[in-house]
Design a protein around this nucleic acid. Structure first.
Lengths: 191, 191, 191, 191
DNA sequence: TATGAATGAGTTTTCATTCAT
DNA sequence: GATGAATGAAAACTCATTCAT
């Protein structure tokens, strides 16, 4: 149903902008040009809207991540490809991205759980890639789980400014992103 | 007045735990063992409490950061010392730390601004240190501002698990922290 | 039209079970297997449905009362025959019976009025029968109107347990009913 | 607390007049001259108000029934004394009386239960009195429980017109009441 | 200073009713 | 006729804030 999607889109923007509590159901309805009761025809409660918004966000995200990697040569390239997919997702789905970023302050315990699991899954994925890289001699023998967490931190730092429009960076976003990722791989120290 | 501090402490815990909207003035008052009107004797509004909580958090943070560095030899050590101070602050002031972490979902525009400025200041500080390091030949010639942002991301990733108690890391926190920081300096790649 | 009757029957059950306010138009429609708008094709409003339900209940009741008395010998037997008809009606039309019993708590003033009139008619009927009985020397010379009211009270007490299924009486309903009616005629006192 | 009682009194009147659903919390508040939130300061929900109203009604009723009988000679006189207490209670507490009368259409299952128990208790009380009367040879040997139910029906029929102000009875209430009760004892039939 | 009683503005949610198909 | 989508009015309930003591 198209209407349902429209409501979820509007909700995503508002929830991302002002958070769960500051967003009212009327605002969501207004944004789609519907009466509030119509919204209640599609969702049973504000909380329900919120959860569906997140659920859809998660699915869209997972979808965006899939199949992006084409015959890469090195593990490093795989990781970069995935990171790039993440980067693109955020550029194209800013509100959803912000929503998925707010892991903690959340009314629905269920939602909190999902986001937590998402994080875990992402860490695992990167950790196993890093593990591979280590085995192949491509990476130094570090704690792969820790490295994955650190990588996610780097990714967040690089994508954050995109999703909340604080364009006070001088570099164009993509260039900035690539260099940031490189920094993670090469380290700060002079050899 | 001691009372004021007590109120702010209680508020910090609650705001950090449940967010601004889910926290009620009565809860704050109850937690200090005062009547709600007494709280209003010290603060003009819930928003005011929130802002003061943040303000105090910022000051405490700044205080914690000051004078921690004693005759270090390398820029790297300076950065590690500061990062360690940050790490310790978070361990000792978990609620405040969480509050200071929630940059975006925030009712008070003013507060948002402060947190943004805090971030900027921290980036600048690290950026200028990195600049120094580059000049001294200690670091590779990277974009110092970008590197500082990345470093903050790493720091966040390493400290996050502390402040929200998800103790699913196997390493003791401090060890984990040190290794994560090292990873930033050395990079992931095998030379 | 058959549909109309089906709607009224469904409504009677629901109104009797849960009362006017707790019953929704959708529930009524669902119970008949129709869409709610279809219901509005037959009735102009929920209130209208309610009133028609009552009206039909009244008619059915009146119908049931008619022609039940065949060549009886005494006024007492006439009264018993009518009371029996009432008893049977309630057994066979429990929901309607309950509806007709709720004289007072009622949204529609009109409905209240009808029920009031029904009561008046029933009292009058019994009163004139009693009058007859008195004139024939069958009954003691009491205030016939008052006696009719009392009789209705007795009837209600005897039929109530049937219509709301509280079968905590030990006697079978019919036996119980007959004895109760007898009590009214004979009185409690030992001669 | 006086306020609480005032609220309950107002609520009793409104609930009795218009039923649970048609009565709004604002109306109750207005009737006492308070804001709605003040009412919520004393009661946690509309349902709570309703239940407390009933509870108080029950207590008041029980209180009214107590100790009314002074050295009477016959069981009949005891019964009449109790019935009279009931009669007086209704005259003096019309709204409460009506509330206590609506056994069935009720939102709170708990409330329904209380009213049902009240009814049971009253029946039992009268039944055991009647039993006594039978043993003493004062009454005919009838089914005492059934007789008690019938008596309650009579009582209701005699008191109903008082509580809902339909003053279309010609007799003064008290006289009417006495004669009605007598009718129950003596029966309608001429000996 | 300290307090709880009082309150209205604001939010979620329900539901009778209407329309376009 | 039949229908479900759309809707606003209305109601319960919450909570920041004020005020009298």
């Amino acid at each position: 149903m198209v209407k349902k999607e429209m409501i979820l889109d509007a909700a995503a923007v508002l929830f991302a902008e002002k958070g769960y509590y500051a967003t009212t159901v009327v605002e969501i309805a207004d944004r789609v040009g519907l009466g509030k009761s119509t919204v209640y025809g599609y969702f049973s409660s504000k909380d329900h809207i919120y959860q569906e918004t997140l659920k859809e966000g998660l699915e869209t995200y997972m979808e965006s991540m899939r199949g992006r990697v084409k015959q890469p040569c090195s593990v490093r390239d795989v990781i970069i490809a995935i990171a790039t997919a993440h980067f693109n997702f955020i550029k194209e789905n800013t509100p959803l991205a912000r929503l998925l970023g707010d892991e903690y302050i959340n009314p629905a315990t269920a939602a909190r759980e999902w986001l937590h699991q998402l994080r875990e899954r992402r860490i695992s994925m990167f950790a196993s890639l890093i593990e591979q890289g280590i085995e192949l001699g491509e990476f130094r023998p570090v704690d792969s789980y820790l490295a994955a967490e650190v990588f996610l931190g780097v990714l967040g730092a690089l994508c954050g400014p995109i999703s909340n429009g604080s364009g006070d960076t001088e570099l164009p976003n993509w260039e900035r992103f690539r260099r940031g990722i490189d920094l993670f791989f090469q380290g700060l120290l002079e050899d």
